[in-house]
Design a protein around this nucleic acid. Structure first.
Lengths: 339, 339
DNA sequence: AGCGAGTATTGGAGCGCTCCAATTACGGCC
DNA sequence: GGCCGTAATTGGAGCGCTCCAATACTCGCT
């Protein structure tokens, strides 16, 4: 009941093991006749080549590693789909590790990938440049990260542009007093920067409300004072500034948090206040929520990351790329007459 | 700049390659002295053993494959975390494949795992029993599936019990006219069955509303007619039956769909109608939604699946296990006085 | 001193492939 | 019909480990 090897296939097809190897890696210099014989033997024996042996013997493993730190983030999950389709086409296999493993079990994903002898790495999570140097294989960064320098190509959505788009949308429909609810992390920082730039260009004052985490609850707690939580609408915030007419939250859950806070304060969306989110997650399209949201296409970005890594693997130089996000207008934003 | 091998380590530590191998697999029959010398050499050379070579030479690869068909499903993602922590402890590596790859690229994940010579497989997605037989390694099924028989242990949450819990909760707070919005898939079927059983025990009539997909939009469209969509509240549905006072949706997004339909019909939740969801996803805890939901702990289930597979790998027999779900009561359900 | 029973350590074979250099086969051409 | 270039095919070496049987080293005892 031993597993068939390349030798078994060779014997059955009446050729040498080397010829079988050539067929498996579909070399062009094999006669059609022999190729057919080998393929037939493969099918008859239900033979599956061992990637272990192939990787050990050859100069590459045809596998690439992906480090993700947040599997719960749908954006990365979708990007992964794009990545997979790009590299799968070339016969590469994907090995996924999550960065949180590091903390939980003391396993460095980069070490794990070294042990697997992956040909390249996609970083969809934070990682120190030093750790990456050690990897010793081509690396591309997928998504906006704080890590910079070290010359790795970064393939990401243009988050700052997304922030600008959100702010401009609100300005175009008449808003002048627009608050940005931001959170920790590189993406949030970039989105916030875009908001600031767009506001600056329009000569409007910015107001950034930082939340502790990129979560609904955190955003809700953070904006509550500004919206005059609980009591009569129209209340003024801290320094006596008027209540804003619009809020840009750096992601969808936070936008929902803002909507929740608005409801608590007796405000209607978009009547009293407009809200824009980011990522266009499924929840943005729920009837109960119907959130205007900005988003890049994660699959497109993931696919580009895969293509970039393939270029790097083929020896070609490759640079960073960014993709412009789009705005999806739903029912959480509306024009206002007088601010 | 060649990568260091076990021979380099051996030479540096002044021992044989075999001794190094023993240390790496922390064999107990190595003197502390030599062990320290080897470990020091490993550190100095920044050596990482090759899993390829180890797997090829040894009787096992210490890697296990996971087939997931829905990466966007947070339940599976969390179960994966539990699984990882269980098997990671024993030094196993995880290789993840998604079933949709099959459709997209014509790659059967089980073939991919065969090529990698994984020691065992966790099936968190549908798969035909036949395909699994071919795998030739121990398999455990994670989560409720339609596949049955073939003797593989199934580690899952007790979905039928969850359905019962949801229905009983609604009955306990006075509801008698309870609708179940169901969808396709094995989990939905089980949850629906639990609902039916609980209703039957209480002598209440059941009413199942099937939706096309396990999604917000589908559920919303499906319940709209029953809630008397759009016009005055209190309207009667098709055969003149009175409007239900409660709805159990087989997952959270669908529950939100029901809430949306209720809002469209001018009904308040939970004033006019109570809604229970399933899975206790993050969105259930949003202030705007605050959904009462049933859920098992996916990590617990994932961890159990890992432990079960480890038992199987160590040669021990292992059986199926189910875990009881819990109810999390929030603001979408409330008592009623008269039905 | 000598021997057995462990315990610690070692060299060799081989896992299933790829790569390479060498060999054979096949036409075409003078 | 022998010769050459190219195309097709082959055997051998070796990738970096694990496993195994064999050897070397301890003691404690007679």
């Amino acid at each position: 009941m031993r597993r068939p090897t390349i030798y078994d296939v060779a014997e059955r097809a009446g050729v040498s093991k080397s010829l079988v190897s050539l067929v498996l890696r579909d070399s062009p210099r094999v006669s059609d006749e022999k190729r057919a014989a080998v393929l037939a033997a493969v099918a008859e024996l239900d033979y599956t080549p061992s990637r272990l042996a192939a990787g050990l013997a050859g100069t590459r493993t045809r596998s690439i590693g992906v480090v993700i730190d947040d599997f719960a983030n749908l954006w990365f999950v979708e990007a992964l789909t794009g990545l997979r389709s790009a590299i799968g086409r070339e016969g590469y296999a994907l090995s996924v590790a999550d960065a949180s493993l590091n903390a939980h079990l003391g396993i460095d994903p980069l070490d794990a990938f070294r042990a697997l002898r992956v040909d390249g790495i996609v970083l969809a999570g934070e990682a120190t440049a030093a750790a990456v140097e050690r990897a010793g294989v081509p690396v591309v960064v997928l998504g906006t990260r704080h890590v910079s320098g070290s010359g790795m190509p970064v393939i990401a959505s243009d988050e700052a542009e997304g922030g600008r788009i959100a702010a401009r949308h609100l300005m175009e429909i008449g808003h002048r007093s627009i608050v940005c609810v931001s959170g920790p992390g590189a993406s949030a920082t970039e989105r916030e920067r875009g908001y600031r730039e767009a506001m600056g260009e329009a000569g409007l004052d910015t107001c950034i409300v930082p939340a502790d985490a990129n979560e609904e609850q955190a955003a809700r707690a953070a904006v509550a004072p500004i919206l005059g939580g609980g009591s009569a609408a129209g209340r003024v915030r801290g320094a006596g500034a008027p209540r804003p007419t619009a809020v840009f939250a750096v992601n969808d859950p936070m936008a929902v948090g803002v909507m929740g806070a608005a409801a608590d304060a007796g405000l209607t969306v978009p009547g009293d206040i407009s809200v824009v989110g980011y990522d266009d997650s499924p929840l943005a399209d729920y009837g109960l929520v119907s959130l205007t949201s900005v988003s890049g296409d994660p699959r497109e970005v993931g696919e580009a990351a895969g293509e970039t890594l393939l270029e790097l693997l083929s020896g070609a130089p490759a640079g960073s790329r960014t993709f412009a996000p789009r705005l999806v207008v739903r029912d959480s934003t509306s024009a206002i007459l007088r601010p």
